[in-house]
Amino acid sequence: MSADALEPLRLRFRQRAGQESRHLADALARGDISEIERLAHGLAGVAGLFGFADVSAQALEIDGEFARGEALSLDKVRALIIALERLSPYS
């Protein structure tokens, strides 16, 4: 038995990271701001829970922009997409 009970969940998150990056890129291309907000919010919590602090921090930045009513930083969204792609074992 693995000493790290979360390792299977971390692996599953990494496997889904590529798919999440594509969903985020599609939402960005469509200009679907509400979908970007939904994805960033979900990633902020889940990525941090599984120990991917950099992805969590990037998603939290985007989520915070929405919470503060600020304009969405497209560069931050693109950076999050790249971070997710790098995390994916399939990229």
Score class of each variant (00 low, 15 high):
1 M>D: 12
2 S>P: 14
2 S>M: 11
2 S>R: 09
2 S>H: 08
5 A>S: 14
7 E>Y: 09
8 P>M: 00
8 P>S: 05
8 P>Y: 00
8 P>L: 04
8 P>F: 00
8 P>T: 02
8 P>E: 00
9 L>D: 09
10 R>T: 04
10 R>W: 02
11 L>G: 07
12 R>P: 03
12 R>A: 13
13 F>V: 07
13 F>Y: 09
13 F>A: 09
13 F>E: 03
14 R>K: 14
14 R>A: 15
16 R>I: 04
17 A>R: 07
17 A>M: 05
18 G>T: 12
18 G>K: 09
19 Q>W: 02
19 Q>K: 10
19 Q>H: 11
22 R>T: 14
22 R>P: 08
23 H>R: 15
23 H>D: 15
23 H>I: 12
24 L>Y: 00
25 A>Y: 01
25 A>G: 11
25 A>I: 03
26 D>P: 11
26 D>I: 14
27 A>F: 06
29 A>R: 12
29 A>E: 12
29 A>C: 09
29 A>K: 13
30 R>Q: 15
30 R>M: 15
32 D>P: 08
33 I>P: 05
34 S>W: 02
35 E>Q: 14
35 E>C: 13
37 E>T: 08
37 E>N: 14
39 L>Q: 04
40 A>E: 05
40 A>C: 14
41 H>I: 01
41 H>M: 04
42 G>C: 04
42 G>L: 01
43 L>D: 03
44 A>T: 04
45 G>R: 08
45 G>Y: 02
47 A>N: 05
47 A>S: 13
47 A>C: 06
48 G>R: 04
48 G>Q: 05
48 G>Y: 01
48 G>A: 09
49 L>R: 13
49 L>K: 14
49 L>V: 14
50 F>N: 11
51 G>S: 09
51 G>I: 06
52 F>V: 09
53 A>P: 05
54 D>I: 10
54 D>W: 05
55 V>R: 04
56 S>Q: 07
57 A>V: 08
57 A>N: 12
58 Q>R: 14
59 A>W: 00
59 A>S: 07
59 A>G: 05
59 A>I: 03
60 L>M: 15
60 L>W: 12
60 L>S: 15
61 E>P: 12
62 I>G: 06
62 I>Q: 03
62 I>D: 03
63 D>N: 08
63 D>P: 00
66 F>E: 01
66 F>T: 01
67 A>C: 04
67 A>Q: 07
67 A>M: 11
67 A>I: 02
68 R>H: 09
68 R>Q: 11
69 G>D: 00
70 E>K: 07
71 A>Y: 01
71 A>R: 10
72 L>E: 00
73 S>F: 00
73 S>P: 06
73 S>H: 06
74 L>N: 11
76 K>T: 06
76 K>P: 05
76 K>D: 13
77 V>W: 00
78 R>M: 12
78 R>L: 12
79 A>G: 12
81 I>K: 02
81 I>E: 05
82 I>M: 10
82 I>T: 13
83 A>D: 07
84 L>H: 01
84 L>P: 02
85 E>R: 15
85 E>Y: 06
86 R>L: 10
86 R>H: 10
86 R>C: 10
87 L>T: 02
88 S>E: 10
90 Y>A: 15
91 S>Q: 13
